[in-house]
Amino acid sequence: MSEEILRRENVVARGAATTRDDAIREAGRLLVGSGAVSEDYIASMLEREGSVSTYMGNFLAIPHGTNEAKDAIKRSALSLVRYTDPIDWNGEPVRFAVGIAGLNNEHLEILSKIAIVFSDEDEVQKLIEAGDADAIFTLLEEVNAE
């Protein structure tokens, strides 16, 4: 992975969505806005969620596109949206929607880095308590490490 996967402008401390599908769209729009994916990728993220939940536990969901959407990916990237009030994600509470797009199976390495952070309840609590998007970004910068 040659460039930053998570950029500061793709971190939102106070998401506006109140439903699962709107949270997926919100995370997807950040990926589109950063030039990582085309608009078609958002529909693919919603399609993926319809077939298998991307809820991972510990207040985390990782919406991503289907395998058929790989042509919509221009570069590997992450977006992160934190929610003050948990979103109902098929009966599970989600405070973080992490949108992901990976070129050439890079998403597997990216997923493992996110999973490590979110498997630590203390780290998740730090992310919940972080004052703003800059603080969240600082806590997650390690996902950009080679």
Rank of each mutant, 00 (worst) to 15 (best):
M1Q: 13
M1K: 10
E4N: 14
E4S: 13
I5S: 02
I5R: 07
L6M: 07
R7V: 03
E9W: 10
A13S: 14
R14S: 13
A16N: 05
A17W: 06
T18I: 14
T18Q: 12
T18V: 15
T19E: 06
D21A: 08
D22R: 13
A23S: 14
A23T: 03
A23C: 04
R25D: 04
A27R: 00
L30W: 05
L31S: 06
V32H: 06
S34W: 04
A36K: 02
A36R: 04
V37E: 01
V37C: 04
E39I: 11
D40H: 10
D40L: 06
Y41T: 09
I42W: 09
A43M: 01
S44R: 03
L46Y: 08
L46R: 01
R48T: 10
E49A: 05
G50P: 08
G50C: 02
S51G: 02
V52M: 12
T54L: 05
M56E: 09
N58M: 04
F59P: 03
L60Q: 06
L60A: 07
P63H: 07
P63L: 08
H64V: 02
H64P: 00
G65Y: 11
T66N: 00
N67K: 13
N67R: 12
E68M: 01
A69P: 03
D71I: 03
I73C: 04
I73W: 09
I73Y: 09
K74T: 11
K74D: 07
K74M: 05
R75L: 00
A77V: 03
L78C: 07
V81R: 00
V81T: 13
R82T: 10
T84W: 00
T84C: 00
T84E: 15
D85M: 02
D85A: 14
P86Q: 08
E92M: 14
R95F: 12
F96G: 02
G99T: 10
I100M: 15
I100C: 12
G102E: 08
L103H: 07
L103V: 14
N104V: 01
H107P: 06
L108E: 09
L108A: 11
I110W: 07
K113N: 11
K113I: 13
I114H: 05
A115N: 10
F118C: 06
F118Q: 03
F118E: 06
S119Y: 08
S119M: 08
D120I: 13
D120V: 13
V124K: 00
Q125T: 15
K126R: 15
K126G: 00
A130C: 07
G131Q: 14
G131W: 05
G131I: 09
D132W: 08
A133W: 10
D134Y: 07
I136M: 14
F137H: 12
L139V: 11
L140R: 03
E141D: 15
V143E: 05
N144I: 11
E146F: 15
E146D: 14
